[in-house]
Nucleic acid binder design. Sequence first.
DNA 1: CTCAAATAGTTTGACTCCCGACTAATTCGC
DNA 2: GCGAATTAGTCGGGAGTCAAACTATTTGAG
Lengths: 169, 169
Amino acid sequence: MARRSAEKLKIVPQPEPALPRDIDFGWLGGTVGLHLRLAQEVAFQAFARRADGADASPWRFAVLFLIDANPGLTQGDLAAAIRRNTSSLTPVLDDLCRSGYVVRERLESDRRAYTLTLTPAGQAAMAELMASAVAHEREIDRLVGRANRAEFMQILKRIIGGLGKDDHR
Amino acid sequence: MARRSAEKLKIVPQPEPALPRDIDFGWLGGTVGLHLRLAQEVAFQAFARRADGADASPWRFAVLFLIDANPGLTQGDLAAAIRRNTSSLTPVLDDLCRSGYVVRERLESDRRAYTLTLTPAGQAAMAELMASAVAHEREIDRLVGRANRAEFMQILKRIIGGLGKDDHR
DNA sequence: CTCAAATAGTTTGACTCCCGACTAATTCGC
DNA sequence: GCGAATTAGTCGGGAGTCAAACTATTTGAG
């Protein structure tokens, strides 16, 4: 009530209110698990950003890539390869078929299954994404360092094999 | 298929390989990006499996840990620390409050904000999860290899810093 | 041959996450 | 003081995931 401009001016010289307060991460800040998560996340987002025009997540690219490399594979095999539930794949493939990139055809020998193949349009889309993916991977390689790459991959594979005992299926 | 002509005993465990078909991963199989993703994923699932009784994902643990280490921090600060949107935090905190682990109190000096603190029950839950987290991290360390740990972390940090688009902060 | 179990894929429901719009409280300009 | 801009947190909608239930087909025991 008695506040006058003089008092307000007194408040002005404080630039600190916006400080986000630095957080003490303690033990958590030194864990591999947290950093693995953060690294994966930024890599994922960087890919999505790079391939933005093409409506593509890394998994979407992987689907196109794997169908291209393994024409005629079934949805179940594909799902196992990307470690996703088959029910997660259904809408993705629906969409890719609708876009004219992929064709689903009943397998002669087992008419419960579909075989997947890329159309020419799908191959073109894949090739375009491939360019982004290569550039993305090159940037990661640069950050990893050429000398460390092989060992870094080795370690990741050990983690995948060592922890992923029975996680899927 | 070891289908022994058993009687009506339905207990016929079939953890058989069920090898799906050899997929050609080609270029994709040699990328850091894919392996980073898979490693993070198995690590995440391994944690969840280990801490199963306690209804806990790694993020849930991180939330409890960070509130414990920084009592009185606000939701916004916490969200920034775990790199999640504040709106992602709301239901998690709702749940933790409902469980009696966390209390939200309006901050005196700025009544838009909440301060977060752990209740004794929350501290107990956190301590229990901490045991799982330590065991989890120890297992990862074992897979990484003692000699490689520092460099491995260093590389992950370079990826985080190099690809993270500074979208927050 | 017949019928029950297994398998490929889809659908549905629950859960988690994000983004953008919204509400409430604060701050600042006047 | 009174409103505009700002900030903390919530709400609603959309995307992605899995598990379980479901349909259609294949396999196999008798």
